[in-house]
Amino acid sequence: MLSINNLCASVEDKDILKGLSLDIKPGEVHAIMGPNGAGKSTLGSVLAGREAFSVTDGSVAFADKDLLELDVEERAREGLFLAFQYPVEIPGVSNMEFLKASVDAVRKHQGKPELSSVEFMKLARETSKKVKLDQAFLKRGVNEGFSGGEKKRNEILQMMLLEPKLCILDETDSGLDIDALQTVADGVNAMRSAERSFIVVTHYQRLLDYIVPDFVHVLADGKIVKSGDKSLAKELEAKGYSWLEGEVA
């Protein structure tokens, strides 16, 4: 599904990713943990193709394609989805209109028939129920005046509608209350399948009680410094990151 090999990337001449390798097979859930500023969000941005970040070395294969060759929107249409740590607002553009345009673009690329407005509205309403987002949010501007938790649920709503192959969730759990955490986890679990993979970036082992990962990685100073199964998350919770310092160096 995704094969990252020795990825190096910088932003504004500052090296952030320093030789990161990671292999993700279809159906797998990988959790990425690590200290603040380690480069977790940067990894998401680089995979999604954000312009400000330049790849200086390494390669990334995504579903048999050279990911780094594709534009941002092409990666999205190929099935790469990034749930943002800090979702931005687009004032005046209704959420419904935005979602429809997005789903239309992705379906068109994948050769699927366009959904009529009626079909789409029905689907959007049903899906928003699943993430416990009131229908009023579909009419409001994209993320406009949404609370932190509402923005995160809106990201999950988008993910469910787009049915991506690879979902990167960047701290989707931060800022969520306990019920919302459950809702988001339910959403993710419902989407788990043999063909779909997840990268879940989080600081808290608690999320991983709900979304049980196949692998847990520690990202520090731009590299994966330790990998393990879900028990690694528990260990990190207990010991913090300092015991790994030797491996960082």
């Binding site: 929107e73 999205a76 553009v93 935005f98 673009a105």
Partner: peptide, 24 residues
Amino acid sequence: FLCQQRGLDAEKAVSMIVNGFCRE
């Protein structure tokens, strides 16, 4: 970036953002 990450091309993204700006 949000718009393009959701599959919209740059032109569509700009026109959507501008249309939103003009909504009132």
